[in-house]
Design a protein around this nucleic acid. Structure first.
Length: 203
DNA sequence: GAGTAGATCCTCT
DNA sequence: GAGGATCTACTCA
């Protein structure tokens, strides 16, 4: 299994990168413990013109600063005081594109994930949804700004590719407050994968 | 089974 | 001082 080169994240089409991330493997290695899962659901955040993005309208704060970094780093932030959400920063420096990883299919370190999430056995909710997968992989704000060239957190390619007919685009989830931008088909997921989270947004 | 409220804390105004 | 890229549990049917 090979680490994905940073160039992968530095292309300028965030939607293309989001689509390409499906089927790739997210790996964390914390305290010598490896946990990993295959990405089956993502959402793209299209920089300063995307109301749902924290960087909308060139908003630049201490929190969003990391989104303006060169592609290939992690953007982790705490939501609702409980959940850590994990994003992949993409594109060139000063262009705040990002991709939220919403769901994984567990691959290795499952026992460790069960410990972290206080679950007794593997079930579909272990890595389904951004809050859950972050907890399972031990992702916290300690990993904010971490480059994927390191060993603590990175993305890898084990040769699995989804066919384009297996990939579905849909509106994003949980961002109703953004008006019409909430309807943009910036969410991609693998068709019929049980770990894919989320009910389609209610109107 | 579906719908709703509450948890909980960091960041920005 | 308010609110959020969510999840879970509990209610009601």
């Amino acid at each position: 299994m090979e680490k994905i080169p940073l160039d992968f994240f530095r292309r300028n089409n965030v939607l293309q990168i989001a689509r390409d991330l499906l089927g790739k493997v997210l790996v964390t290695q914390l305290n010598g413990i490896i946990t990993s899962g295959r990405i089956v659901e993502v959402e793209a955040y299209n920089g300063i013109i995307d109301k749902a993005s924290h960087a909308f309208n060139s908003k630049r704060t201490k929190r969003t600063e990391i989104m303006y970094a060169e592609g290939g780093v992690a953007y982790v932030y705490l939501c609702y005081g409980i959940h850590h959400l994990f994003n992949v920063v993409t594109n060139k420096k000063d262009i705040p594109h990002a991709i939220l990883i919403r769901a994984l299919e567990p691959l290795s370190g499952i026992e460790e994930m069960l410990l972290r999430t206080s679950k007794k056995k593997l079930d579909l909710s272990l890595t389904s949804g951004p809050g859950n997968l972050s907890k399972a992989l031990g992702i916290s704000n300690l990993l904010n700004g971490m480059e994927f060239s390191g060993d603590q957190i990175y993305l890898a390619d084990d040769g699995v590719k989804f066919k384009s007919i297996e990939i579905v685009a849909s509106p994003r989830i949980g961002i109703d407050y953004t008006g019409k931008d909430a309807l943009l088909p910036y969410r991609f997921y693998k068709k019929d994968n049980p770990y894919v989270s989320g009910k389609p947004k209610k109107l």
